[in-house]
Lab assay of single mutants.
Amino acid sequence: MAAGGDHGSPDSYRSPLASRYASPEMCFVFSDRYKFRTWRQLWLWLAEAEQTLGLPITDEQIQEMKSNLENIDFKMAAEEEKRLRHDVMAHVHTFGHCCPKAAGIIHLGATSCYVGDNTDLIILRNALDLLLPKLARVISRLADFAKERASLPTLGFTHFQPAQLTTVGKRCCLWIQDLCMDLQNLKRVRDDLRFRGVKGTTGTQASFLQLFEGDDHKVEQLDKMVTEKAGFKRAFIITGQTYTRKVDIEVLSVLASLGASVHKICTDIRLLANLKEMEEPFEKQQIGSSAMPYKRNPMRSERCCSLARHLMTLVMDPLQTASVQWFERTLDDSANRRICLAEAFLTADTILNTLQNISEGLVVYPKVIERRIRQELPFMATENIIMAMVKAGGSRQDCHEKIRVLSQQAASVVKQEGGDNDLIERIQVDAYFSPIHSQLDHLLDPSSFTGRASQQVQRFLEEEVYPLLKPYESVMKVKAELCL
Rank of each mutant, 00 (worst) to 15 (best):
204 T>I: 03
305 C>P: 02
67 S>D: 09
400 H>N: 02
343 E>H: 10
396 R>P: 05
407 S>C: 09
45 W>C: 07
316 M>A: 09
191 D>N: 10
82 K>I: 13
464 E>T: 10
143 A>Q: 04
451 G>P: 05
473 E>N: 15
462 E>T: 12
200 G>V: 00
80 E>C: 13
419 G>E: 13
148 E>V: 10
129 D>A: 10
50 E>Y: 09
419 G>Q: 11
88 V>D: 00
335 A>M: 07
253 S>N: 11
236 F>K: 04
250 E>Y: 12
406 L>N: 06
319 L>R: 00
250 E>W: 08
304 C>V: 12
309 R>P: 01
239 T>G: 02
245 R>A: 00
150 A>S: 10
438 S>C: 11
283 E>A: 14
277 E>F: 04
384 N>E: 04
208 F>M: 12
294 Y>M: 03
231 G>P: 04
186 L>S: 11
292 M>R: 01
90 A>E: 02
185 N>S: 10
63 Q>N: 10
402 K>R: 14
89 M>G: 05
290 S>V: 02
241 Q>I: 00
104 G>S: 12
30 F>Y: 11
283 E>I: 15
17 L>M: 15
404 R>Q: 09
281 P>M: 12
400 H>Y: 04
282 F>Y: 14
319 L>D: 02
390 V>K: 02
366 P>H: 08
50 E>Q: 05
349 D>G: 09
375 Q>L: 07
242 T>G: 05
68 N>A: 09
185 N>R: 10
35 K>D: 01
382 T>P: 01
454 S>D: 13
156 G>F: 00
45 W>T: 06
195 F>Y: 13
351 I>R: 01
310 H>E: 03
230 A>F: 04
382 T>M: 11
9 S>R: 11
341 L>T: 14
279 E>K: 03
124 L>T: 14
156 G>S: 13
13 Y>K: 07
316 M>T: 14
452 R>Y: 07
70 E>P: 11
308 A>F: 03
326 W>N: 05
383 E>A: 01
54 G>R: 09
247 V>F: 09
369 I>V: 12
27 C>P: 14
189 V>C: 15
51 Q>F: 08
4 G>R: 14
379 F>E: 01
202 T>A: 13
242 T>H: 05
470 K>T: 14
428 Q>G: 11
449 F>L: 03
109 G>A: 08
70 E>C: 07
299 M>C: 13
464 E>N: 05
83 R>G: 14
4 G>H: 15
343 E>R: 05
469 L>Q: 04
368 V>N: 04
254 V>R: 09
360 E>G: 09
80 E>T: 11
83 R>I: 10
328 E>N: 01
268 D>V: 02
169 G>V: 01
90 A>Q: 02
277 E>V: 04
445 D>L: 14
120 D>H: 08
365 Y>Q: 12
417 E>V: 06
54 G>W: 03
100 P>V: 10
122 I>N: 04
213 E>W: 10
93 H>G: 13
141 R>L: 12
414 V>H: 02
234 R>F: 07
132 L>V: 13
138 V>S: 11
453 A>D: 04
69 L>V: 09
321 T>L: 10
24 P>R: 14
104 G>K: 13
234 R>K: 10
249 I>E: 00
180 C>I: 14
177 Q>P: 02
322 A>L: 14
448 S>V: 14
98 C>D: 11
102 A>H: 01
24 P>L: 10
48 E>S: 07
339 I>Y: 05
241 Q>P: 00
327 F>Y: 12
134 K>D: 15
357 N>H: 09
115 V>F: 00
142 L>Q: 04
218 K>W: 08
323 S>F: 02
47 A>D: 01
396 R>G: 03
262 V>K: 01
295 K>T: 01
213 E>N: 11
253 S>R: 05
50 E>F: 06
280 E>T: 03
21 Y>V: 01
287 I>W: 02
395 S>H: 08
363 V>D: 06
215 D>R: 12
135 L>I: 14
85 R>T: 05
18 A>K: 11
254 V>Y: 14
390 V>F: 03
3 A>L: 10
98 C>L: 11
284 K>P: 07
379 F>C: 03
386 I>H: 07
219 V>G: 05
186 L>K: 03
250 E>N: 09
44 L>Y: 08
432 Y>V: 08
223 D>P: 00
341 L>W: 10
198 V>I: 13
334 S>F: 01
38 T>G: 04
299 M>S: 12
397 Q>D: 11
429 V>P: 02
379 F>T: 04
212 F>V: 11
286 Q>F: 00
5 G>L: 07
319 L>Q: 03
279 E>V: 06
303 R>F: 00
89 M>L: 03
190 R>F: 13
402 K>S: 05
417 E>Q: 14
212 F>H: 05
22 A>K: 08
415 K>L: 07
251 V>T: 12
160 F>M: 06
230 A>D: 00
138 V>R: 02
64 E>V: 13
137 R>G: 15
307 L>H: 15
15 S>E: 10
18 A>G: 15
238 I>M: 07
245 R>V: 01
477 K>C: 11
277 E>G: 02
473 E>C: 15
177 Q>V: 12
472 Y>E: 15
367 K>D: 04
365 Y>W: 15
129 D>I: 13
231 G>M: 09
33 R>A: 10
170 K>M: 07
441 D>A: 11
375 Q>E: 06
463 E>V: 09
175 W>T: 02
288 G>A: 08
393 G>W: 05
20 R>C: 00
40 R>M: 00
295 K>M: 02
141 R>N: 11
62 I>E: 01
387 M>T: 12
350 T>P: 06
157 F>Y: 08
476 M>R: 15
98 C>E: 10
141 R>E: 15
410 A>N: 04
435 P>K: 08
166 T>I: 07
388 A>V: 04
17 L>V: 14
364 V>D: 05
64 E>F: 13
459 R>G: 11
173 C>E: 02
37 R>L: 13
53 L>Y: 06
348 A>S: 09
272 L>F: 06
368 V>T: 09
209 L>K: 09
272 L>A: 10
452 R>G: 07
45 W>D: 14
